[in-house]
């Protein structure tokens, strides 16, 4: 069989909605694209624990603390499902960690913004997890089997993340004047970074066409972004708050909301490492990895010792 035939067979499978599994032939570019996307996604889940983790010890009640703990623990799980999915493509876990720690791999820029008040935890749940869900639901049908299966698991868990965030904001929005102000302020700060989470607009993302052809992606960045804006523009009314966009207006003709221009300069700035918390986030990750080294070594030593003992007993 020639490469050409293999590629045809591969594309036929994709077109017929037959999932690609780890041992199947796949174009090298497909494998590379997936490794990059899945590992980036995994890194985002892991780094994403940091901004919210900041508030676990200071949650306003035991109920909120328990909820936040459970959510952050879920995010760790999401990272693990995704790392495992990426490993089926032939990259090792340590290699991925290495790429993250050396800054070679990116993670979602949203996590380079600080969480200044308790209301930020609510805004993250509603907007950041909300945007993530928009992205992730179509990924449950992505063409690579292990990735799709990981996303099914992730999506099942995400919905509580968004609901708890909205609920936290709802409480603030019905509270004192100060609490209302805090709520609006958090929405004001998290709105635009959340809108940017969908990535560059379609004419700026040259890889989209190929990703769509391979059905890694099923909607373009702009399609998903529009969906997100439409949904949030309605939801914010229930909070009695506003979104910080004077151009946000229902467009009867299109059946969608029009919205203002996105500050792409800020986006690229944060992507390239100049966001408010890039250094802090990466330093925290690296420190956690380094501080865990002795635990990893001790566990390996313990496992080896036990194996040796069992071997002696068996002999």
């Amino acid at each position: 069989m020639h490469v050409h035939d293999l590629e045809t067979t591969f594309q036929d499978k994709i077109d017929n909605e037959i999932r690609i599994e780890p041992k199947d032939w796949m174009p090298e570019k497909y494998r590379q694209t997936l490794i990059r996307q899945i590992s980036q996604h995994a890194h985002s889940e892991i780094v994403g624990m940091l901004p919210e983790g900041n508030w676990i010890s200071r949650a306003p009640s035991l109920r909120r603390k328990a909820i936040l703990l459970a959510k952050v623990q879920d995010e760790a799980g999401h990272g693990l499902y995704l790392y495992s999915a990426a490993e089926t493509l032939g990259i090792s876990r340590e290699e991925m960690y290495d790429q993250l720690h050396t800054g070679k791999a990116k993670y979602s820029s949203i996590f380079n913004y600080p969480t200044l008040t308790w209301a930020d935890v609510g805004a993250i749940g509603w907007l950041v997890d909300g945007a993530a869900i928009m992205n992730q639901v179509p990924l449950c049908r992505t063409s690579y089997g292990p990735y799709a299966r990981a996303m099914v698991r992730v999506c099942k868990e995400e919905s509580f993340h968004q609901r708890q965030g909205f609920e936290a904001l709802l409480h603030l929005s019905r509270g004192t004047e100060d609490q209302k102000k805090m709520c609006q302020d958090a929405i004001d700060r998290w709105w635009w970074p959340s809108v940017m989470m969908f990535g560059p607009s379609d004419d700026e993302s040259p890889n989209t066409a190929l990703s769509m052809k391979w059905r890694i992606k099923r909607f373009t960045n702009d399609e998903l972004r529009q969906k997100f804006v439409d949904v949030c523009a309605e939801q914010v009314k229930i909070l009695g708050m506003t979104l910080p966009d004077p151009d946000l207006k229902w467009n009867e003709e299109k059946g969608h909301y029009d919205f203002g221009k996105i500050n792409w300069e800020e986006f690229w700035n944060v992507v390239s490492g100049n966001g408010p918390c890039n250094k802090q986030r990466l330093d925290t990750r690296k420190k956690a990895w380094e501080n865990g080294a002795w635990v990893r070594e001790a566990a390996t030593a313990h496992a080896e010792k036990r194996k040796a003992k069992e071997a002696v007993q068996a002999a």
Partner: peptide, 22 residues
């Protein structure tokens, strides 16, 4: 690349995994 899902790591593709990886 016979990693993960279906095992046979030793027969797998390029592995840069160091000895320290569990």
């Amino acid at each position: 690349f016979l990693y993960g899902d279906y095992g046979e790591i030793k027969a797998g593709g390029p592995s840069s995994a160091k000895k320290t990886e569990w």
